[in-house]
């Protein structure tokens, strides 16, 4: 069965997270990345962010994803880079890396889709002491249980949390120095992401895209996203 994530992969959407690539670049500027920084891009998608970090900052970048189409697109993008980005077919729930390897880990709309305790445990394990986790994730302000269920079932979110709940999960898994900001999708300016509908896009995928537009219109006021950073 085709899912929302399959549609994102098929459309090859770069920066498929709230705030888009503009927000990513803003966050990266704050991170103070050096050439010696080891950074893990979790759920790298088409590889736009990992490529940018590698080229702009010359850092050591490792990227993971599990979607075959995304991996294919990321691999193609990384093949032309002067500095290699190490790409792995891996899930954040079971990272194929030794402990304390990364200075920073970036999750752009990933943690909402996975088993959170497993993912946070793994991220904590592979982060160096004082390493940073940065996330941009779906969040909500006010939704009923039924509305949450409808949204989560369409997007296949494993959890849909408030900023406070995100903060609690991070804290429960040992992270500290948690800074978190909530943004509504109705707030301006929200940077958006370009995508192209082609004649080859299947009717099923088009229907999912239409449903996504409907969900945005219906829940735009209550459903937003949060940006957080925390330390090991």
């Amino acid at each position: 069965m085709t899912t929302y994530l399959d549609v994102l992969a098929e459309l090859g959407i770069d920066g498929a997270h709230p705030g888009g690539f503009l927000l990513t670049k803003y966050i990266l500027r704050k991170l103070k990345i050096k050439q010696t920084t080891h950074l893990l891009d979790v759920g790298c998608g088409t590889g736009q962010t990992a490529t940018y970090i590698s080229e702009k900052y010359g850092a050591n970048v490792t990227a993971i994803d599990i979607h075959p189409k995304m991996l294919e697109k990321a691999r193609a993008r990384f093949s032309s880079l002067s500095r290699p980005v190490h790409l792995h077919n891996a899930s954040v729930e079971s990272l194929p890396f030794p402990a304390e390897q990364f200075d920073a880990i970036l999750c752009e709309s990933v943690l909402s889709f996975v088993i959170l305790p497993k993912a946070l445990q793994e991220i904590y394990r592979v982060l160096k002491p004082h390493g940073k986790l940065i996330g941009i994730e779906a969040a909500y302000s006010q939704l009923t249980e039924n509305e949450k269920k409808e949204i989560a079932s369409f997007y296949r979110f494993r959890q849909l949390l408030t900023p406070k709940e995100w903060s609690a999960h991070l804290s429960n898994h040992g992270f500290h120095g948690i800074e978190i900001a909530y943004c509504s999708t109705k707030q301006r300016p929200v940077s958006q992401t370009p995508f192209t509908i082609t004649s080859t896009l299947s009717e099923e995928m088009l229907a999912i895209l239409n449903r996504h537009e409907y969900m945005k219109k219906r829940y735009g006021k209550q459903l937003g996203y949060c940006i957080f950073s925390c330390k090991k």
Binding site: L8, I13, A16, H17, P18, G20, S109, S112, A138, Y155, F157, T185, V190, Q192, T193, P194, F195, T196, I197, H212, E213, K216, Y225
Partner: peptide, 8 residues
């Protein structure tokens, strides 16, 4: 058709 949108 290329559009802009917000994705999760």
């Amino acid at each position: 058709i290329t559009l802009i949108g917000l994705f999760w």
